[in-house]
């Protein structure tokens, strides 16, 4: 059986008359009838659109509410997420290669209570290893004073980044979850305020990566140094 031409059915769905030939075919053919019925339903629904059906954006408070509800999660990015297609080999692989790392060997931090201690007190510290060698290339320490906790990162002799910068991350020991804590400037020495409420013990791995001004807040998978902090 020769079925109806879809172009003919489309204008029939809009209400134009069908030829006798098409009419007869439609009576005999459930397949063509079904195509026509579906388009008739679309047309009838579309023709009942009222001005109220046109899209309006929600008020800004809705996005703010979503952000507030998700904030603790949204700042943590899972490394499983291999986010950048241009650099498919995630730095997780580099971590697995074990450049100077013994994952899992660091237990949780003992949380130092330092309300009366002279400031700043060191909560945890460690060396940062170059990602292409085993020599210690820098240091990192979590310090605490009356204003809160800070990560003090020192990595001397870092080359300038063309069209980019260095970002400092803290990650779980298995490198599955990470938080960006700030940038490392040209001096190679930065004291970064850690987010209040961040449990430092959960993020003992410090990483410095090359980032570009590309609007992507995720890790670039280009790490330059990394190391575990110990109490």
């Amino acid at each position: 059986m020769v079925h109806c031409d879809d172009d003919d059915l489309a204008v029939i769905a809009l209400g134009e008359p069908a030829s006798r030939e098409i009419e007869e075919h439609l009576q005999a053919c459930a397949l063509c009838r079904s195509s026509l019925d579906q388009w008739v339903a679309v047309v009838s629904s579309a023709r009942s659109i009222t001005p109220d059906d046109h899209l309006v954006a929600p008020p800004p408070s809705v996005w703010e509410g979503i952000r507030d509800e998700l904030e603790p999660r949204a700042t943590v990015t899972s490394l499983d997420d291999a986010r950048r297609s241009r650099r498919p080999v995630g730095w997780l692989l580099a971590a697995a290669a074990g450049v100077g790392l013994v994952l899992g060997s660091v237990a949780t931090f003992g949380l130092v209570t330092s309300s009366t201690a002279p400031s700043p007190s060191i909560v945890a510290q460690g060396g940062l290893d170059s990602m292409d060698g085993v020599a210690v290339a820098g240091t990192a320490a979590v310090e605490e004073d009356e204003t809160g906790r800070h990560l003090h990162v020192t990595v001397p002799d870092l080359p300038p980044v063309e069209d980019g910068y260095y970002e400092v991350w803290m990650a779980t020991a298995d490198a599955s979850t990470m938080v960006a804590v700030g940038t490392l400037g040209p001096s190679g020495d930065s004291i970064l305020t850690l987010p209040a409420g961040m449990n430092v013990a959960d993020f003992p791995l410090v990483d410095v990566s090359v980032e570009h001004f590309d609007g992507n807040p995720g890790h670039s998978a280009q790490s330059v140094v990394r190391g575990l902090l110990a109490t």
């Binding site: 952000r67 904030e71 949204a74 700042t75 990015t77 991350w169 938080v179 960006a180 804590v181 700030g182 940038t183 930065s190 970064l192 305020t193 987010p195 807040p217």
Partner: peptide, 10 residues
Amino acid sequence: MATAAASVHL
């Protein structure tokens, strides 16, 4: 100092 939290939302 800009943290990731800030940069995400900015």
